[in-house]
Simulated scan of single mutants.
Amino acid sequence: MCLQALNTLALPAVAKQFLCFENEAQLPELQEKIQTSSKRWVLGGGSNMVMADTVDALLIHMQNKGIRLIAQQGDEVWVEAQAGEVWHDFVHYCLDQGWYGLENLALIPGTVGAAPVQNIGAYGIELQQVVHAVKVWDFLTAQYLWLDTADCQFAYRDSFFKRAPQGRYMIVAVQFKLVTAGAWTPILRYPDLQHHPLLQKTPITAQAVFQAVMAIRQQKLPDPAVLANAGSFFKNPIVTTAHYEQLLAQYPDLVAYPYQGQYKLAAGWLIDHAGWKGKRLGPVGMHKNQALVLVNYGGARAADVAALVQQVQQQVFELFQVQLEQEPIAVQ
């Protein structure tokens, strides 16, 4: 099964085994299949993966759909979405229903089921702030588990699911705790939002935040359907206050944000100042408008991506003594 159309970096990977998961009635068949596969990967939108030329595993493509309101109490609502739902479409749907809290996460590529794995975040919001529970299938015990936010062990771009034995769990559905208009307040900590024209009028609405986030992302980030990419390719590194102050003294325009007693540096700024913004290495490069985004100009394979990553990491470390960590998962 060729996976080039199923990963946003458009790498021409091939999976030895492939199954499209559309509903829970397929679980007996899936449990039978895993007995003959040594490894398995769960694939959502393919937006956070770097695929090897050959994926020697069973690849499970999540295509289960459905969104439902579980409960409402005052201004609080609980909503469940199946893992195969497209993330941005789900955010849009919630806004249309008057369920708020996800608007800062608009236009993030991928699926609902992939969102907790990465603990996706943007413009002042992380998924852990709105997740109520995650429904998973445990391949080892062949049973369902419900994990609350503590069980998920969320951290910056990290979760229990990333640290669990590879291929043991499959996220089937995610429940969210959102609010209606009476309890909603905008989160506008990032300067891009504070200064956006759509957010200069009062009262600010969730729909206006949603539109502003989309406009900012569309201006800064290439559309994977037009120019293949995996979104933000490196995590924003977290450094000590002493390291931050040392860098700030040397680079007064350093972009950073306080984070849990330390500082989170803007990886895009580091890459840009290392000279990689808009620079190519063969068929891949760092995008001309956003240095944090690695793009495939056509014909790239996993080895091309790895070579570029190694050079960017090396030069950033030489300049700033900061080790960049790749965000997309290596699928082999």
Results as ranks from 00 to 15, higher is better:
262 Q>Y: 06
68 R>A: 08
257 Y>T: 03
113 G>M: 14
144 Y>E: 06
234 F>W: 04
76 E>C: 12
61 H>P: 11
3 L>A: 05
77 V>K: 09
221 L>M: 09
242 A>K: 05
55 V>C: 02
48 N>C: 07
157 R>K: 08
157 R>W: 04
77 V>E: 06
203 P>S: 03
157 R>C: 01
111 T>R: 00
175 Q>T: 08
269 W>T: 01
328 P>M: 09
184 W>V: 04
173 A>D: 10
94 C>P: 03
105 L>K: 15
171 I>Y: 08
305 V>G: 13
47 S>Q: 01
271 I>E: 02
165 P>R: 09
252 P>R: 02
73 Q>Y: 13
72 Q>S: 15
76 E>H: 13
109 P>Y: 10
189 R>I: 15
64 N>R: 10
198 L>T: 12
260 Q>P: 05
6 L>W: 10
330 A>W: 12
27 L>M: 12
135 K>G: 12
152 C>I: 03
295 V>L: 14
304 D>N: 12
312 V>P: 01
97 Q>C: 13
291 A>H: 02
175 Q>E: 08
330 A>I: 13
45 G>N: 12
189 R>Q: 14
332 Q>D: 11
281 L>E: 10
244 Y>D: 01
98 G>F: 01
284 V>E: 01
282 G>I: 09
20 C>N: 07
304 D>G: 05
194 Q>G: 12
107 L>H: 13
276 W>Y: 06
227 L>T: 12
233 F>D: 00
302 A>V: 14
296 N>L: 04
210 F>D: 12
311 Q>F: 02
102 L>K: 00
321 Q>N: 03
177 K>F: 11
142 A>T: 08
131 V>M: 02
325 E>Y: 10
269 W>E: 02
291 A>Y: 09
223 D>L: 02
56 D>T: 11
98 G>D: 07
243 H>I: 01
283 P>D: 01
164 A>S: 14
9 L>E: 00
170 M>N: 13
156 Y>H: 12
205 T>G: 08
254 L>S: 01
201 K>I: 08
174 V>P: 03
139 F>P: 03
22 E>W: 06
279 K>S: 07
251 Y>N: 01
67 I>Y: 04
103 E>Y: 09
49 M>H: 11
256 A>G: 02
215 A>E: 09
298 G>H: 10
146 W>S: 10
68 R>T: 14
234 F>T: 00
169 Y>L: 07
262 Q>W: 09
292 L>W: 15
147 L>C: 12
237 P>C: 05
279 K>V: 05
318 E>A: 15
243 H>T: 01
26 Q>P: 09
31 Q>Y: 10
186 P>K: 04
185 T>G: 07
179 V>T: 11
112 V>E: 03
209 V>L: 01
294 L>E: 03
244 Y>E: 00
322 V>A: 14
256 A>S: 04
13 A>R: 02
320 F>R: 00
193 L>G: 04
307 A>P: 07
32 E>T: 14
123 Y>R: 00
52 A>S: 15
111 T>M: 10
155 A>E: 02
147 L>S: 06
149 T>Q: 08
53 D>F: 15
7 N>R: 06
246 Q>M: 14
160 F>D: 01
327 E>M: 11
316 V>L: 03
204 I>P: 05
258 P>F: 00
229 N>P: 11
90 F>W: 12
269 W>Y: 02
98 G>H: 05
48 N>S: 10
2 C>E: 13
230 A>L: 05
97 Q>Y: 08
136 V>P: 05
105 L>F: 04
189 R>G: 08
315 Q>I: 02
198 L>D: 07
35 Q>T: 15
